[in-house]
């Protein structure tokens, strides 16, 4: 459903992404790994429209989305989180949740949206914090809020940038469960993580990036055994 073809992104003279191509199928759970600076976050930024590609195409459900503004891409059903959690600090938890609900036109009645927000907060077990300022939440709670906020968009594709970093081990297990549940509902996932154990565990398929190019693409077991991957991680 999501197709990235011959994607190129230059920053000044530096080529961050070099002719990257991959596809993501309906309801797939795709992991992207790679060493620091290999272009993982850049890829997500390109798909979500925060960066404009230098070259190449991104297609979602058969329509080009590269070059579209971020809000339009979000409205078409691609949601994402950030590596450094980005909640709206001086707004309440519920207000955070209502931003995507009200930003996307024809989402339905405001009242229903609010009920939905409370239901999602309940699912993530942070509904007791709904009137708290987001900046007063702990780091883990903020991660959950960010996840919940995406669900308000009701996206088909959810891209998570380092969902396990800096998270308490117990919460990490919870996030695993949430992802699995949401995946079972039919959503497609793209997950970036340094936490190799988690990502090998979760993903159905893995893409390995190095220096802006794809060096490996396959089921986790094959990727684990691939020489190029070992070299990329351990080399130099």
């Amino acid at each position: 459903m999501l197709e990235v073809a011959e994607l190129v992104k230059d920053f000044g003279g530096v080529r961050a992404i070099n002719k990257l191509s991959f596809t993501v199928g309906e309801n797939e759970l795709l992991g992207i790994i790679g060493p620091n600076g290999s272009g993982k976050t850049t890829t997500i930024n390109l798909i979500s429209g925060l960066f404009k590609p230098t070259n190449g195409r991104i297609t979602f459900r058969g329509k080009r989305i590269d070059g579209l503004p971020s809000y339009e891409i979000a409205r078409r059903g691609i949601g994402r989180t950030f590596q450094v959690t980005q909640v709206f600090h001086r707004m309440s938890v519920l207000e955070n949740m209502m931003v995507p609900a009200l930003a996307v036109p024809h989402k339905g009645e405001e009242k229903d949206q609010k009920k939905k927000a409370l239901r999602i907060l309940g699912f993530l077990k942070i509904d007791h914090l709904r009137n708290e300022f987001a900046r007063n939440l702990s780091g883990g709670q903020q991660k959950l809020l960010e996840l919940g906020r995406i669900l308000m968009l009701d996206p088909d594709v959810i891209m998570l940038d380092e969902p396990f970093s800096g998270v308490h081990p117990k919460l990490k297990m919870n996030i695993h469960e949430y992802i699995k549940e949401m995946h079972a509902e039919g959503r497609t996932f793209i997950i970036i993580s340094h936490d190799l154990q988690s990502i090998f565990n979760l993903s159905q398929r893995l893409i390995v990036l190095n220096e802006g190019t794809k060096i490996c693409d396959g089921v986790p077991q094959d990727v684990k055994d691939d020489d190029r991957v070992v070299e990329a991680y351990l080399g130099d």
Binding site: S48, Y71, A74, F88, P100, A103, L153
Partner: peptide, 17 residues
């Protein structure tokens, strides 16, 4: 207020910044 707090996050949440 969402834009004030985090422009990029607001954008990927569907807000026409």
């Amino acid at each position: 207020r969402a834009i004030r707090e985090q422009e990029e996050a607001a954008a990927v949440m569907g807000v026409n910044v």
